[in-house]
Write a protein that binds this DNA or RNA. Sequence first.
DNA 1: TTCACAAACTAACGATTGTTTGTTGTTGTA
DNA 2: TACAACAACAAACAATCGTTAGTTTGTGAA
Lengths: 201, 201
Amino acid sequence: MPRGHRNGVRTNESIREAAANLFYQRGFEATSLRAVAADVGIQVGSLYNHINSKDDLLTEIMASIMDELVDRMNAALDAAGPGAVDRLVAAIDVHLRYHAQNAQKVFIGNSELRSLNDEQRKIVVTRRGRYEILMRELITSAAEESGVELLDARLQTYAILALGMHIASWFQAKSRIKLEHVVNVYTEVCLRQLDIPRPTG
Amino acid sequence: MPRGHRNGVRTNESIREAAANLFYQRGFEATSLRAVAADVGIQVGSLYNHINSKDDLLTEIMASIMDELVDRMNAALDAAGPGAVDRLVAAIDVHLRYHAQNAQKVFIGNSELRSLNDEQRKIVVTRRGRYEILMRELITSAAEESGVELLDARLQTYAILALGMHIASWFQAKSRIKLEHVVNVYTEVCLRQLDIPRPTG
DNA sequence: TTCACAAACTAACGATTGTTTGTTGTTGTA
DNA sequence: TACAACAACAAACAATCGTTAGTTTGTGAA
């Protein structure tokens, strides 16, 4: 590995990539920094030119997941039409796609929460709470617009979030099951359980 | 701790209880056998009078989850009426209740699969596959009986399994949300997404 | 009362862990 | 060409890990 300051950025990215991969495959605690370093192609000690600690590395990865998801969600909602059902459909679309396409990171986010310290966990949990509330508001608005009554807004929101969590546990990009098909079916599943008819046109 | 052979059974159970608790709270890799022993109230070495290895302890706990679930499922199906929809509703009921009431163990089962070696993982994965197939058959039968066409049997089965996985990640027995309510709402959610009407009577 | 066994104990082992340190080489800039 | 800054290195650290070994103590059956 060359030593100068040109490869800093590349190394930095490589570390986070390799770490995410290993955390997914073996879990955070089971992954040694020596394994991360070996994947990058440097020595253990050299990692500390790019990270503060192993814990911070995990926190960084987990926080980036929620940030990316929320960013995409906001972008999709900005681009969506004014109709509440349309907005909900757009949100479900982003939710499912993101969880499928970032299955590894999402799985880390779901299974390694306990590896964070109280402070770090609070940060991540708070962001999740906001995401959940956003989704619930989209659902209640869509229900109102459609003139249907919800069984239980919270639980029916959970049912949609559950699909994302589950999809991340099995979806593989190279699978025979095409993402488009999954999104189509799951979107229909969501609307059915909410009793909301698809918007016409 | 008394030493004779009277406390053997109690200790054995205590170890598995304490281990399941700690594996849930901290994760398998982050849990030291010293912590397990401390919770039980014995020394580390003494554990090996009751376990083969740390790996085996995890395997045992994970296998027992699937076994219990399948047992309860079979019992419920035996007790259910002959109607395919009735049988599906009974299965969903067991599925949801078990995942809620055994949230800790189920979470371990979902997050620590990677901590098993190939052989052990294969065993657990195979049992899961059978469970999935059973659930899918119940769904297709119920759909046929109701005269409705499924969008995608596999994905719609996943949507139901997802509810169990998700419920295990948040349900707490002492919560304000009552299990009966959750089961009622989620059962309705499942039937709606399958487009299957509730059986009359 | 004797005795085998179950189940606890203490103590140690080699390996691995995250992290720190001091040093060396490379790069871009002045 | 000289000089910081950056990023790699090698080597060591204290701590902790799963596991094993040998020993001690209590129990229940003969």
